[in-house]
């Protein structure tokens, strides 16, 4: 007869009824939560897109490896094979010293100087294209390569990566601070909504306690309310960002055409979207829980 699921279903239905009971207030609350959340989440989305764009336009970072003089052809073949099998390496390019010299002649206009050389001073080289693009992993790979025999000089041009990382780090920090502040706002909004609900349902709570309601039973509708309100707020934030991106992309399309690029802004991944909904639902629940803990015990039947 006492089925826990029946009770929970009842409470959820009750919660939705409560939301619909005051449609304007509920809608405003959900909108406020949605807008508050959409700021940090929107920042996060932009950050992700900037990161993608930067990686796309700045080109892939490379590591140049110069071989020691006198490395034999067999050794080069073996090294080349080992590099190709390395997990952190996407693909490689071998630059024989003759080709390097020719390129130098062509590209720098030092044809005279180079032509005057009796002997090619350049070493054989590999250009390595790594899988990972972030600075710490690149540096790790560079250090690894440095320990290989016959590699005389390993050079990673990571300045751009460092700069990008620094900018992104700054952006992430800004988004995080914003998210923390607005999460607090969400909790506060829910706290207050629930406080008002508890006040208006004083009689009901008192009577329920008198006829044997457990604290859990009295708490549950408020907690569910906070959870559902937070969840709907999160969904609203998602929609706000979706609409903004739609608008931005529409305008971006023209711009991108001018630059012959097909760049467009992407929304949250499904995983991130779920995280957003889960987090907003949790914050709503937390606000309700704090409010209930704070206010419910004050109502004791007389």
């Amino acid at each position: 007869m006492k089925s826990a699921t029946i009770q929970h279903v009842q409470v959820i239905r009750f919660t939705l009824q409560r939301l619909l009971h005051t449609p304007v207030a509920s809608l405003l609350n959900i909108l406020v939560i949605g807008i508050a959340l959409s700021l940090p989440v929107g920042g996060y989305v932009l950050l992700k897109n900037v990161q993608g764009l930067a990686e796309q336009t700045a080109g892939t970072p490379q590591i140049s490896v110069f071989l020691a003089a006198g490395t034999s052809q067999e050794e080069i073949t073996r090294i080349s094979k080992e590099l190709k099998e390395h997990a952190a390496i996407d693909h490689i390019e071998f630059v024989p010293r003759d080709l390097a010299l020719k390129q130098l002649q062509l590209s720098t206009g030092l044809a005279d100087v180079v032509g005057g050389l009796t002997q090619n001073p350049l070493p054989d080289a590999f250009v390595i294209y790594p899988v990972a693009l972030d600075a710490p992993k690149l540096e790790l790979l560079r250090d690894d390569l440095r320990s290989w025999p016959r590699f005389e000089h390993v050079q990673l041009d990571s300045a751009w990566a460092h700069k990008l990382q620094a900018i992104l780090r700054f952006g992430r920090l800004a988004v995080l601070i914003l998210a923390a502040m607005l999460s607090f706002a969400l909790v506060a909004i829910t706290f207050n909504t629930i406080r008002l609900q508890i006040l208006t349902q004083r009689d009901e709570i008192e009577v329920a306690k008198l006829i044997g309601a457990t604290n859990g039973f009295i708490r549950r509708p408020f907690l569910y309310f906070g959870l559902v309100q937070g969840l709907l707020g999160g969904a609203t934030a998602w929609l706000i960002i979706a609409c903004s991106l739609l608008l931005l992309n529409y305008n971006l399309a023209e711009l991108a055409q001018l630059y012959a690029s097909n760049f467009s802004l992407h929304h949250l991944t499904p995983g991130d979207s779920l995280a957003l909904l889960g987090f907003s639902a949790y914050l709503g629940w937390l606000g309700a829980w704090l409010s209930v803990s704070q206010h419910l015990w004050q109502i004791e039947p007389k």
């Binding site: 006492k2 089925s3 009842q10 009901e204 008192e206 329920a208 006829i211 044997g212 309601a213």
Partner: peptide, 27 residues
């Protein structure tokens, strides 16, 4: 109770229903 303590936000039926809801009886 001397002062009844009825809830005026619901009808008579739902007032009597409350104790059963609290105990989790099926509808």
């Amino acid at each position: 109770f001397q002062d009844h303590k009825l809830l005026f936000d619901r009808n008579a039926f739902d007032n009597v229903m409350l104790p059963l809801q609290i105990c989790g009886f099926d509808h």
